[in-house]
Design a protein around this nucleic acid. Structure first.
Lengths: 147, 147
DNA sequence: CTTTTTAGTTAAGTAGGCTTATATATATGC
DNA sequence: GCATATATATAAGCCTACTTAACTAAAAAG
């Protein structure tokens, strides 16, 4: 069973995409938050603080919709909304400790699955996998800097 | 910047998880279907035909909710619902060509992103990445067969 | 055969996300 | 300084997902 690089990548992507999508939707359900709400927290976790319009642009929803979702997350204590000192019309949205923990917990559950996978690898295989994922990570960084 | 295998895996997972989540939610929006609807199609794509109760168990919703979602997907022509000949109470849910295309298109868009990444790799790097992803794919298969 | 369980549908009602329209406060351009 | 543009919030209303409850039909158990 010799695979081309493209086949190898796609096979792996299929496994990983399906797993992580499933994991996140199930995790979201367990938190009591809706998927859009969790997505907003995730966004802030990965990209850092931002204003409200950045949220509505990212998720392609109206400002009104973003404002309402954010309001719920502020109410539930997952988000902190402060006035932007450099522009008093704008708000700065930050994860609270509670929001950060919620997302980190979801990420950790994904990690755990991969840890199980990694545990079954030989030392030699681990070295190879590590090197390859570093290569991919660097490649993505190069592309993103170029954009 | 020397990374442990765990660090390398987690860094890569972060990038890939966030990307694919974002990609799928955006894609779902473009199709006009809701995320739960797309998730059902995705489930059938990856796991093959099943009955209605398998859907409700997998997504942890009531049979009634699953039945209503499936009904919409049948109406929109993404799903074919037939009677199970071996148990006439049960239904067999299958993707239609339209449903299969919709999911495959979403997967292809994810593939394209990775193709862009792979394109920037040297021949030597491609070999390493291919080998590593094959190792991971095999490891997952071993674990899943064990369960 | 009769009873009970299983698979799925249908109906009514709740909750959440989304939209458009409207309002408010601040910043920017002339 | 005044008109306009920008960042956000609020309100009304629609649509969808979800729930529980009531129902049909077929299988399984006795």
């Amino acid at each position: 069973m010799t695979k081309s690089p493209q086949q190898a990548i796609r096979t792996w992507m299929d496994i990983f995409m399906h797993r992580s999508m499933r994991g996140w939707t199930q995790y979201a359900k367990g938190t009591g938050l809706s998927m859009p709400q969790v997505s907003i927290l995730m966004q802030l976790h990965y990209r850092g603080a931002c204003g409200l319009s950045a949220i509505s642009e990212r998720f392609d929803i109206s400002n009104a919709a973003a404002s309402q979702l954010v309001e719920k997350l502020v109410q539930s204590g997952h988000l902190v909304r402060t006035e932007d000192p450099s522009d008093r019309r704008a708000k700065l949205l930050n994860l609270s400790a509670k929001g950060r923990d919620l997302i980190q917990q979801g990420i950790n559950e994904r990690y755990q699955w991969m840890d199980e996978v990694a545990k079954t690898l030989s030392a030699e295989e681990k070295v190879k996998v590590t090197e390859a994922l570093n290569i991919l990570t660097e490649a993505v960084k190069r592309i993103e800097n170029r954009e």
